[in-house]
């Protein structure tokens, strides 16, 4: 464990930026976003950037391949390998979200090559939390404000800087490159404070045995009632650091084109609409139910973890306040 003065942060990013594109939190129109860093001021007073780490490793749209030629002569070119990138300033919940997406995309019969390449090209420098935001509930979902999953280096905010600790070999390497900026850490106080941080909203929620308690709840009238306020937009899914649903689509001009893969949301009414008109989830009730059961029941069944890390973005941003905390609160009352 090392200590880095706050003032050394630009030099750290500058050094790492010689080999990679650096991203850091920046303030823009009153919002904090993870943005390409070109020396601008690095935002520090934020709980979570508006955009999660997800978009930098699993972009909203990315090319699968390019095609050229006509009906009878056609050639394909796979998308080139992504350039190395360093992302500073994401929170432990977001990094844990990345780890969860990695489980889905990298484990099993098939490996998602696009994600694998970009994940391996990314160094995640996570800033642990000293203060909870009003809508944070990470602990309820089994994630801690000092969670190391998905991170390469942990930065624990200290009085005049950060305690810095590598989590992975990639993180170790990054820290070696900036060894001159690091001093021995006097103690582990800052890390301990993050590890012990209380998350008040999480303490109000019960997630014990949730998957088991949700058995047989599929047809409960609760879903119809709660779904009424849903507007079937994609705000929750697109801000969510763990939602990974995508669509694959082509775009072309003349004889050249690209096949792209991009985010989609199970809340959009056409998500499951098939050519021919069959739609297994035409009703809001069905789509809302699928979203929450996916995160609270199917994800534990398939991957051993909730599909939610408690970052609070859906809580803050859902235009109709239909979010994970609302549903968990309701379930606490409705479920046996």
């Amino acid at each position: 464990m090392k200590l880095m003065r706050a003032g050394a942060l630009p030099r750290l990013l500058e050094t790492l930026g010689r080999q990679a594109q650096v991203y850091a939190p920046a303030t823009e129109d009153g919002l904090v976003l993870l943005r390409p860093w070109t020396g601008q001021a690095i935002a520090t007073s934020y709980v979570n950037p508006v955009n999660s780490l997800k978009g930098l490793v699993y972009p909203q749209t990315e090319a699968v391949l390019e095609f050229t030629g006509g009906d009878e002569n056609l050639s394909l070119r796979e998308a080139p390998a992504p350039a190395p990138q360093v992302v500073f300033g994401g929170r432990p919940c977001d990094a844990a979200g990345l780890a969860l997406i990695a489980q889905v995309l990298l484990e099993g019969t098939f490996v998602d090559e696009l994600f694998r390449r970009r994940r391996e090209a990314t160094t995640v420098l996570t800033v642990a939390c000293r203060e909870p935001g009003p809508y944070c509930f990470c602990r309820a979902m089994g994630v801690s404000p000092a969670d190391e999953r998905g991170s390469d280096v942990m930065f624990y905010p200290a009085d005049d800087g950060y305690l810095v600790e590598a989590v992975t070999a990639r993180g170790e390497e990054a820290l070696q490159a900036v060894a001159g900026l690091l001093a021995p850490a006097p103690d582990t106080g800052a890390r301990d404070a993050c590890r012990e941080l209380r998350i008040p909203l999480a303490e109000k929620l019960t997630t014990d045995r949730l998957a088991a308690r949700l058995e047989g709840f599929f047809e409960h009238p609760y879903w119809e009632q709660v779904a009424r306020r849903c507007r079937s937009c994609g705000t929750c899914a697109y801000l969510c650091p763990t939602c990974y649903c995508t669509a694959i689509f082509d775009t072309s001009r003349g004889t050249r084109g690209r096949r792209l893969r991009g985010w989609d949301s199970c809340q959009f009414k056409d998500f499951l609409l098939m050519a021919g008109g069959h739609n297994p989830r035409p009703a809001k009730k069905q789509r809302v139910r699928n979203r929450f059961l996916h995160k609270l029941s199917y994800s534990p069944a398939n991957h051993g973890a909730y599909g939610c890390v408690g970052c609070g973005r859906c809580v803050e941003k859902c235009p109709a306040d239909l979010h994970m905390v609302a549903v968990l609160t309701d379930l606490g009352e409705v479920l046996p």
Partner: peptide
């Protein structure tokens, strides 16, 4: 409706 065919697109 399927998009990826390989269990990744969540559809």
């Amino acid at each position: 409706k399927m998009q990826c065919g390989v269990g990744k697109c969540g559809r």
